[in-house]
């Protein structure tokens, strides 16, 4: 079999297997609406899915493929490479409950979660093949339409740093604010529904005064260059041991420890095509809140810290650091 025949058979196999994946007839309308009117016309709420997947991520099996060379290694905040024997000892996630629910049920759960209104949590509980239950849920979120509106809301959360400036040429694209519930508040169950297939759908809200802003994502684009973006992700954590935090570094990336005023740690992960600056600041006072999984989480020995990721293709690490220096 020659190369062209191989390619033809390859494509045929893929296309036959993925016949259920076809283009969206309304994609053109969404693309032109998003680009010309600045409207948010998303078929899916992207960050919602990212967070739902993050739940699954925390409970996934580390595969042989991942162990054999998915990334070059791990470094800690000091840029020290984790020895192989210790890398093997990093917590290995267990099977994802979402993987043990059939795809159509999981898709239903995703659609229900996507239907959540602003500042509403939808939690879907389904039976899995192991005789237990699996849950899928979103986070409490707001989506300001402008950077100015974003800044107004961030004023409520002085513990979350915001960029001191935006590099020249970059324009606001979109943002997402994530909320949890203050420790002395509660997630209020507003409705429960059991579907025909046995799935249980619960909806929760948090009183406005109990909602605590615990993170955000923020993205910018530079005019004329579609692949030139700048993204910021910030998150409040309960933390116990920062030495346990390790950052994966791919084979084509280098890790560079940086000093950023006002941050306890900063490390840049650099490659020819991509740059990430991850920073960490310990908060002087603990910001206590209930975590999104709707069960009270107790960390009596924990402290609060904020982690900030800045990601971009074009902006250099020094500029990314300057954006948050002294914040």
């Amino acid at each position: 079999m020659n190369e062209q025949q191989e390619k033809a058979k390859f494509r045929q196999a893929i296309d036959h297997t993925l016949t259920g994946l076809e283009g969206d007839p309304f994609l053109y309308q969404r693309v032109t609406a998003q680009t010309e009117k600045g409207a948010h016309v998303m078929k899916h709420r992207k960050w919602n899915m990212g967070l739902v997947i993050a739940l699954a991520v925390m409970a996934c099996i580390m595969t042989a493929a991942a162990a054999s060379g998915w990334f070059g290694g791990y470094v800690n905040w000091n840029g020290e490479i984790l020895p192989e024997e210790r890398a093997d000892m990093l917590p290995h996630p267990t099977a994802a409950p979402e993987m043990s629910v059939d795809m159509s049920s999981f898709r239903l759960a995703q659609e229900l979660v996507m239907s959540a209104q602003e500042m509403e949590i939808v939690q879907v509980t389904q039976k899995n093949v192991f005789g237990g239950e699996s849950t899928t849920s979103n986070r409490l979120e707001k989506h300001p339409d402008t950077y100015e509106a974003f800044l107004v809301l961030l004023a409520e959360a002085p513990y979350l740093p915001v960029p001191a400036f935006i590099p020249e040429g970059y324009e606001f694209s979109d943002c997402q604010l994530v909320y949890d519930c203050r420790r002395d508040g509660e997630y209020v169950l507003t409705s429960t529904e059991v579907l025909e297939d046995g799935s249980r759908v619960e909806r929760y809200r948090v009183a406005e005064e109990d909602a605590l802003l615990s993170g955000y994502s923020l993205s910018f684009r530079r005019n004329g260059d579609p692949e030139d973006y700048l993204a910021v992700y910030t998150r409040l954590y309960h933390q116990t041991d920062p030495a346990e935090h390790h950052i994966g570094v791919n084979e084509d990336q280098t890790a560079q420890v940086m000093a950023v005023a006002g941050m306890d740690n900063a490390i840049a992960i650099l490659s020819d095509t991509h740059r990430t600056l991850t920073m960490r600041r310990v908060l002087p006072q603990k910001v206590d809140y209930l975590y999104y999984d709707l069960e009270e989480v107790r960390y009596p020995d924990s402290y609060s810290e904020v982690q900030i990721d800045v990601m971009t293709r074009q902006v250099d690490a020094a500029t990314m650091a300057d954006m948050f220096s002294g914040q």
Binding site: L18, G50, I61, T63, W70, Y233, H274
Partner: peptide
Amino acid sequence: RGFWFRRVERRVTPEMLPDRTQ
């Protein structure tokens, strides 16, 4: 590479593939 998408690769199994039309 995104922080909120940073994840462990899951081994894909047949039942995880999208439903087929043929």
